[in-house]
Design a protein around this nucleic acid. Structure first.
Lengths: 151, 151
DNA sequence: GTTCCTGCAAAACCTTTGCACCACG
DNA sequence: CGTGGTGCAAAGGTTTTGCAGGAAC
């Protein structure tokens, strides 16, 4: 799904639910589509404020919830106390490799793992809807530092 | 590691760090060891309060943090706004299969998946420290209901 | 003209912290 | 007895909500 399609999908979502568009929602969606993935609501608000200073954080939260309901965004909980949002349309599916040194997040996919997941679910009688896989470790830049110094 | 060993490990942890035991910590550890996994701090507090009404929620949080530091507990963030804690000693490692219908959580392990994870990490130059894998879907009891009714 | 949306501030949540007193060692 | 633990309440951070005014359809 391209960015233009995402915008169209959002407009459609609004219309079918009796909701209205607004300058703020356009700006927030625009910023959301052009951001790196895995941003915080506050991150997004900071960026949006640069273009349109009057937009409130609450409005960003409300828009993000809408994006999630419209299937454009996905809310994720990494190992911190707050949520991050990613574009749901960007790639059909992917998992995350997260550096515990610098926080860098790399996306990857592996069909073999997916297949094994389905097999495990089936073995327990489950019908899979989705999953979450996160690998934590040191990226190439942080690996040398990790050896010399403990936390 | 058995429950008795867990208690001993905690006592050792306290001693080596110049910390003290207390009635509250004993009670909280006891309750923690005898609870189902994946409990909330509040869940644990509720249970502990039944045995010892005066124990405060803050004390439970402080104890849980200690348990984590001592390696007895692991803090996890599922797809909600709060933390859940599990016994770290129960099994060396496992992943989770979570029913989106009833919330039931099943633990499983799969060495093949683990191996592939290491391979993926290596391909990206990462050195793995740990990971998180959660499979979401309908358990056998909830699967039939899922077909007839959309959300 | 409705109805929904917005900004602000206040509330609601989970979690942590400050403080005076108590208990362990 | 000194140091760390506890309970309470207050503060902290993130997310939600109530409300009066404004904008969209």
């Amino acid at each position: 799904m391209s960015k233009a399609e995402a915008k169209a999908a959002f407009a459609r979502y609004l219309q079918s639910n009796g909701l209205k568009g607004s300058r703020q929602r356009e700006r927030i969606l625009e910023a959301f589509l052009n951001m790196p993935p895995h941003l915080t609501a506050e991150d997004l608000h900071r960026r949006v404020s640069r273009m349109d200073a009057g937009i409130g954080l609450a409005t960003v939260y409300r828009a993000l919830r809408l994006f999630c309901e419209a299937g454009l965004a996905k809310q994720r909980h990494f190992e911190e106390g707050r949520s991050r949002f990613e574009q749901a349309f960007a790639h059909d599916h992917h998992d995350h490799l997260i550096c515990v040194g610098c926080g860098r997040i790399v996306e990857f996919e592996c069909q073999e793992i997916e297949n094994l997941q389905v097999a495990m679910a089936t073995r327990h009688g489950f019908t899979l809807t989705h999953h979450r896989l996160e690998l934590f470790g040191y990226c190439p830049d942080c690996a040398p530092a990790a050896e010399g110094q403990g936390p």
